[in-house]
Each structure stands twice: as C-alpha cells, then as structure tokens.
C-alpha cells in the first residue's frame, strides 16, 4: 500500500462508520455532524454503525456500585422540594380518593357520592382582611417555580401573613392555594390566593403556630374555591422555605 492512494470516504456508509467509531478529528467530524443533523438516510447509516460499535461493548456491561446513583441524585438541580412535594400530592390525592370510596361503601350506595365538589370545604377558610403594602415582617419565604415567584411575609407580632402574587398563569377554572407544610409533612391550607389582587393579606389564626423555620410554604393548583379535600389535590407549582428575615 502506498500513501498516494488514499481512498476518500465518498461512500456515506463509510463516513457514517468513521463518525460512529470516533475516527474523525473535530475538524473532520464537523461536516459529518452537520450531515447527521439534516440527512435522515445518513442518520440511519450512522445509527446502524453505532449499533455495531456498541455491540462490541455489550459483553462489558456491568452493574455500577449503588453509591453512584445516590451521587447522581445529589447532583441534580435543587428542585427537590417541589419534586418531593408533587410526589406527596399524588399520595394525598390517592388517600382522599380512598376516603371517598370508603364513605361510599359505608353509606351503602352511590346516592351520597356526588363527586369531589360535594365534599365540604375545610372549615377554617382564612379570612381576607385587606389589601395593603406589606409591613416589614420577621419571617419571609420566596416561593419559586416555573409558574413564577410569590413572596410571603409573616408578621409574628401582628399574626398576619402578607402575600405578593405574581401572575401565575392559571386558567379561569383553577385557583392557586397557599399551604404551610410543617415538620410533620402534612399541609395546612393558608387560603386561596385571589387572582385579582397583587397583594393579599390574611390572618392564619391557629395555623400561625406552624409558621416557623421548619416549615415549607407551597402553592398548589386547585379547583375554584380551593381544594375540596383539605389537602392539596393539584400539582405544587411553587415552594419555598420560611426563613427568619434580618
């Protein structure tokens, strides 16, 4: 063989093989990668070669040690709270359904089963006091999520909670409900955020005792009027930890 007779990789199949086996330098790979991005026939060739190349690896499969998965999980972006909360919401939803079914069974028929909208609202619907600018408050939480940002301030002396709503982009059939999730993990309603007010103030009453730095504040999407079960039924869209300001 002499160096003067270098066969060019004019055959797209061979170019695909070169790309799949990783033979091309960055400069050479550029045109091939652009072809890969736009040419479905070339993609198919490349995929087949990559399949062959990977078949060479198949005999080397090995279970990674368990700790690697935990290390990966730890490095995922910090939206853990939201994620765990949504998983919990799924459980609450199931529990509420199970309770409804139990009610249906104990009443011996379907007559009382009027759907979730007939389940009584939680008694302690927080009272809306006024819309006013927030005073400087000792406890604050910034609730964040894809839907936007809501800030919450709790004045321990006055026992009032002030909420600045951003636009949460909910449709007309849904409402945003505010919850406190204390250390026991069971959410308590702080009330439904009025869609038409940028600042909303409420007096949480007995729930105020739960507003401390161990608590998470969250907003969930609920039917108009708030959760029919007393626990979140829709996805949590915003969460944040309550912190001592100043």
């Amino acid at each position: 063989m002499t160096d003067t007779e270098i066969p060019e990789a004019t055959d797209p199949d061979i170019l695909a093989a070169e790309l799949a086996f990783g033979l091309l330098d960055d400069a050479e790979a550029g045109p091939a990668l652009r072809l890969l991005a736009r040419d479905t026939a070339f993609q198919a060739l490349h995929d087949r070669w990559l399949g062959y190349a990977l078949a060479l690896f198949a005999s080397t499969a090995e279970d990674p040690p368990e700790w690697i998965w935990r290390a990966i999980e730890r490095q995922l972006p910090a939206n853990d709270t939201m994620d765990q909360l949504n998983r919990r919401v799924a459980r609450w939803r199931f529990a509420a359904l199970a309770a409804s079914v139990a009610l249906l069974v104990t009443t011996g028929g379907g007559a009382l089963w009027l759907g979730s909208s007939a389940v009584p609202h939680p008694a302690e619907a927080p009272q809306t006091i006024a819309q006013a600018p927030a005073p400087a408050a000792p406890m604050v939480a910034m609730l964040q999520g894809k839907a936007g940002v809501v800030s919450v301030a709790f004045d321990q002396t006055a026992g009032t909670l002030t909420v600045s709503n951003g636009k949460l982009g909910l449709d007309a059939r849904h409402t945003a409900q505010l919850w406190v999730i204390p250390a026991d993990g069971v959410p308590r309603s702080l009330g439904v955020l009025p869609a038409d007010r940028p600042v909303w103030r409420t007096a949480p009453g007995t729930t105020a005792g739960l507003l401390n730095t161990a608590a998470t504040i969250a907003v969930s999407v609920e039917p108009l009027g708030g959760s029919p079960t007393g626990l979140p039924t829709g996805p949590a869209i915003l969460t944040g930890k309550l912190m001592q300001a100043g």
Partner: peptide, 19 residues
C-alpha cells in the same frame, strides 16, 4: 420526572458503565 430518570438509570446504567 425523577422517577422516570431512576427507571432509565436502572435499565441502562450497566451498559453505560461497561462503556
């Protein structure tokens, strides 16, 4: 979806680890 991510990992990690 982290649960899907965990399932994906379960199914594919041995081969990726092999590579």
């Amino acid at each position: 979806d982290r649960e899907a991510f965990a399932a994906l990992y379960r199914q594919t990690a041995p081969r990726m680890f092999g590579i």
